[in-house]
Design a protein around this nucleic acid. Structure first.
Lengths: 150, 150
DNA sequence: TTTATATAGTTACAAACGTAACCGTCGATT
DNA sequence: AATCGACGGTTACGTTTGTAACTATATAAA
């Protein structure tokens, strides 16, 4: 049954698994404590750190498809965490910004995020974090690894 | 709107994004050429490299939930890429193994995988790959990063 | 031997997703 | 100003997912 191929040595698999390992317990926190999905959390993070922006901008900033953004914005709007401000110059889009309530939760969750990141840093150790930083930077830099664009 | 928090600097986010960037074009390949989902590809990879095993073993080996495994096995069975061999000592489980057809496709796809991995290695460069390897190893080693097990 | 508990695997159901179609608005061309 | 293609955003639809309930078998205890 020998083959020379092992999933454990395959980079896409390992990266995916690492990503899940690292994300899981944080995702569980914001889901349990605030009932947020990941698209919602990302939308909140984008608006909270950058400020008012359009739905499209949110997608660009946090690398999410526009349907995900649309649904996340809709859901956060229901909770009154954000509001839409129509643009009078071009009525196709609106500026979206957090409400006071939204900013309040944003702050709470970023505290969680900071804490979590520190936990990760401690668990992995300074050296590993440095390696990770460099590796991620390289991947981000080469973004667009696609063989045949399609 | 300043906050001190940036998604771009948040490790879970960056890892997730990196994982998607790296996986996407390979996933597209096996999906387009063989109409495989990721759980199916992982199941194939597990069976191909290790040999016959139970559904539970597949889940452990490739870190997939049993429902994913169950569905993937079912689907591969339909294509006659694998067969089930009931255990007479304990009829709750069966050994699952690739058919000749399944092994044939396994070989084809592992070739793709090798090629793809080489592409990644070249794109990222030796240095970055070394960093990535070390970082992933650290994450894998600390697996079970959960704060409060739940 | 009946009862209880655990385990391997499947299925049912609801939530989340991606693709594609769609709606309304804009700018450019005529 | 009528038409056309492009764009921001939403919705519809089918697929994939996760959780939980379930089936069937096995083991252990009463």
């Amino acid at each position: 049954m020998e083959s020379g191929f092992e999933l454990d040595g395959f980079i896409p698999y390992r990266l995916n698994r690492a990503s899940e390992l690292i994300s899981l317990s944080f995702a569980r926190q914001y889901k349990q404590e605030f009932d947020l999905t990941r698209p919602e959390w990302r939308t909140l993070a984008a608006l909270g750190s950058v400020g008012a922006m359009t739905a499209k901008d949110i997608g660009v900033h946090s690398h999410m498809h526009k349907t995900k953004v649309s649904r996340a914005v809709h859901s956060l709007e229901q909770r009154h965490w954000l509001k839409r401000i129509p643009s009078y110059t071009d009525r196709r889009f609106e500026q979206i910004e957090l409400t006071a309530l939204g900013r309040e939760y944003y702050r709470k969750i970023t505290v969680l995020a900071h804490t979590y990141q520190e936990t990760v840093r401690m668990k992995l150790g300074e050296e590993a974090i440095r390696h990770l930083d460099l590796a991620l930077a390289a991947i981000e830099a080469s973004a667009g690894l696609r063989r045949k664009s399609k």
